[in-house]
Amino acid sequence: MKLFKSGRNAYLMASPYLAWAVIFILVPLAMVVYYGFTDGNGSFTLNNVVRISDPGYFKALWRSIYLAVISTLICFLIAYPLGMILSSMKLSNNAFLVTLFILPMWMNFLLRTLTWMTLLEGKGVINTLLDIVHLPAINIINTPGAIILGMVYNFLPFMILPIYNSLSRIDENIINAARDLGADSVQTFMRITLPLSVPGIISGITMVFIPALTTFAISTMLGGSKILLIGNIIEQQFTLVYDWHLGSGLSIVLMIFILINMIVQAVYDKEGGALG
């Protein structure tokens, strides 16, 4: 390559970002680990991490996992058929349609959660509409159900995009070949379509599960600040209690989940992602 006469120029050009990444990505993470494993005097302790087993914190973590799993599952069940329908349409006229399904991904999630506060509240829009048609009111605001609804609404596009991508990349000839060889539509789906879309499914699960597991705003807004998730507990350590050590310790527990997710993702995503 002649663009760089010597490697040195390239290193010189990359150095600002390298420095930036060290200062603003690696050092901060190291600080979380440092605070998580030290006490107020700066001496080493496992206490902050172990305190995840405190009944209150453990309950919050368990509740977060539980709600995140249900939300992820619902997102998957909605998104997979959607991805199949979208990918079976002709590309020329569905580009805009696909965009419509994915656009909300980049719209402020606070506002999207706010819309559900408005819709679900006791005398809100949905109950008013139900009242007009003489149906009983629903009271799910400030319940785990409302939090799940908020999570599904917010994170659904993150499931649709990777599943659609992986489904639309499947070569139609493979499916036709299976059909020619006598597979019925269920067999074709179970043995061709589903296995080939696994990378998309894994990536979708990650993109929904991690934000759902770690959210604190959705539970504050739709759970009425009484249903605490692990995200709420950590947030409080930094904004109310000012116990950075405990907050960091609990964050390390969260990072373990993220790490597991990264590993699963790396195993399935052998192409190395868009950057690799």
């Binding site: 603003f24 050092v27 901060p28 770690t214 990072m255 992602g273």
Partner: peptide
Amino acid sequence: NIPMINADIVTGISLMLL
């Protein structure tokens, strides 16, 4: 890839600590 994969809350508190 770290900031893209990491949970926003962890990125947020790590920068706050820095």
